[in-house]
Structures are given as structure tokens and as C-alpha cells.
Amino acid sequence: MSAVAVVVPAHDEERRIAACLRSLRTAAARVAPLPVLIVVVADACTDATARLAARGGAHVVETRSRNVGVARAAGVDRALELLADADADADADGDGDGDADGDVWLAMTDADTTVPPAWLAHQVARAGEGHDMVLGTIRLAPTTADALLVARHDAAYFRTRRFHAPGGAWEHPHVHGANLGVSAAAYLRVGGFAPLPTGEDRDLAARLIATGHRVARTDRHPVHTAARLRGRAPGGLADLLASLRLTPGPHAAPAGPDGAGVDCVRTPGVPGGGKSVRDVPVHHL
């Protein structure tokens, strides 16, 4: 692997972008001397997100799409351009023949999220084992959610874990753009992120699985994401949490657009497996 690029879409995240970038710099230090490039996509921002991201050491791309799929794709494009330029500059004969995309790892998170110190190291290790994609899990940031909301969310989020052997790895059914990694080669082979206002992460995972790529699902090193009730993407986590606030009983299942949680995907053959707007089969690895 020649480099890691972290892409962070952001819309008016001046309150949270600094904490996100601090956590990413800590995670990047754990994979040194492997180069880590951080790209923040400031999408239709009307606040200081772009300025704060640049101050935090990120490369900044400004877009006006108000579309997370477009923003993630723009961030990946910029990251690969920067790495290709660096590869050409480092090329001994100056002809730029190096394949900058072939061994680059793309890590995804969100601007309202903080990652644990070993987050990138874990993704790089799974890539080294031959996986093309790593799908991680989330936790609600405790400073942004009350205990009842966390209990309601977790009751649905972890419901498939009880079907796994005690002590065994939980091959979870979730897909989150806030905790996702993919090889650049695999990403480009399937056409990258689609210009979807929500579900771009599930759509990418579905195409990778359908074309036989190796996907690792892991609950190690979950990220912490803000538990806000008014989100940036329609049908995302914020909408789910808002529905949980209106659901009677602490153990009620979330009521997404199709009657289940919108931040999880169906697990074939697993009783009680969740589903989302777009079903993605789970391949047990």
C-alpha cells in the first residue's frame, strides 16, 4: 500500500470539524510512515467549515451540490489527483508512469464523527489480508445523546449480535459512510459513489458485493457520531433518531421509511435482521 486518503464530507460543520480532524490526525500517526492525506469536502457551507478544515491540515474541496454522494465522489477524485501528482513528482524519470490508484486505500468518515486511534491501522490491516472493503460500526457520541435515546437506538442496532456465538466476531449488517474503507482499485472498478442524496454508502457496498469483492464487516474500532435529530442527508441517522424519540417504549424498533431502521441492512437468514431502503446481502467471511 502506497498511501491512505481519508475523505470527509461536511455541510455547515464548524462546531465539529476540528474534533473530527484531531481524531484523524491521531489515527494517521498510528500508520506512520504510511502517508495519510485528508480531504474535507465543504458542501454548500455557509459557515467557517472550509476555513477550519484548512487550518486543521486538510485539503479542502468546496462544492454546492447538497448531495452526499456527489460530495464523497468529489473528495475521492481530489484525493486521487493529489496522490497522482505526488507520485509523478517522485517518479525518478519524471514520466509519471506510476499507478497511484492501484494500492491506495480510501477511508470514509463524516464531519460530525470522531474516530478511535487504531481506526486506520485496523482498516490497513484488513486490506493487507486481501479485503477490498471494510464496513465498521458506530456508537452515538455520549455527549450528544440522552440515555433513553441511546437505549432505543442500541436495542435495534445490536439485535443481530445475539445470534452470534458468545465471544465470536459480530458480522454486523450495517453500512455507514462514517466508518467505511475501500481500496481505490475496487472503488474505481465499480464506478465509485453514485450521486445519491442518501444511501450512497449502501449502494457502493451492494455493487462491490455483487461483483465478488471481499468485504470485511467488523465491530472493532467503532466511530462516535453525533446524535442530532436534524441531519444533513434525508433518511439518514438523524431521521432514525427523530423517529425513535416519537416511538413509545425504550425497546421499540425504529420506524424508517420501510418500517425498520434506515441505518442498517437486511441480514439474509438471520431472524430479526434489519433492513433499509436498499438491501445489501451479508457475506460471511
Rank of each mutant, 00 (worst) to 15 (best):
R51A: 15
G136N: 11
D99G: 07
R55D: 12
V182Q: 03
L140Q: 08
G130D: 06
P33R: 07
V115M: 04
C45V: 09
C45H: 01
G102K: 09
G56Y: 06
A206Q: 14
A210C: 01
A165H: 13
D43Y: 03
T113N: 07
R217L: 08
L208N: 07
S183Y: 03
N179F: 05
G231A: 03
V39L: 06
A48Q: 13
R220K: 06
G256W: 00
G259N: 00
D146V: 06
G167F: 04
L204S: 00
A185V: 03
R278F: 01
L241Q: 12
G249K: 00
E129M: 15
P234F: 02
L140Y: 09
V60Q: 08
H284W: 10
P222K: 09
A54G: 14
L148N: 11
P268E: 12
D89I: 11
A147C: 04
T144Q: 08
F163P: 03
D132M: 01
E13F: 04
P254Q: 06
V36T: 15
Q123R: 15
D95T: 13
T218S: 15
R126M: 13
R64E: 11
R139Y: 07
T113Y: 03
A18T: 15
P268F: 10
G231S: 05
P271F: 02
Q123K: 15
D87W: 07
V36N: 02
R202F: 06
A233C: 14
D47G: 10
H172G: 00
P197F: 05
P268N: 12
A186G: 05
Y157R: 05
G130Y: 12
R16A: 05
A127G: 15
D77H: 08
G130H: 08
A10F: 03
E171T: 14
R230D: 14
R16Q: 09
R220H: 09
R78S: 01
L21T: 12
A73E: 14
P281V: 00
V7C: 08
R228K: 15
V182P: 03
V215S: 11
A210K: 03
E13I: 01
R161I: 01
V104L: 15
H251S: 13
G177I: 06
L244Q: 08
D85C: 12
P166D: 13
R228Q: 11
A127N: 04
P166F: 08
V175F: 00
A54H: 10
R159L: 02
L52S: 05
R126F: 12
T225G: 10
D89C: 05
L148Q: 11
L204H: 13
G168V: 08
A28T: 07
D93I: 11
A169C: 08
L229M: 08
P254R: 02
A79F: 11
D263K: 02
L204Q: 01
D263Q: 14
P254F: 04
V282E: 02
R266D: 13
G177A: 06
D87V: 10
G212Q: 09
G102A: 15
P195I: 06
T143K: 12
L246P: 01
E129T: 04
P248Y: 09
L241I: 13
A121E: 01
V36K: 02
G269T: 09
R64A: 15
A155H: 15
G128D: 10
D89V: 12
P257F: 02
A28N: 04
R30M: 11
F158E: 11
E200N: 03
H172P: 08
R15N: 12
P268Q: 10
A255P: 00
A10I: 03
P35R: 12
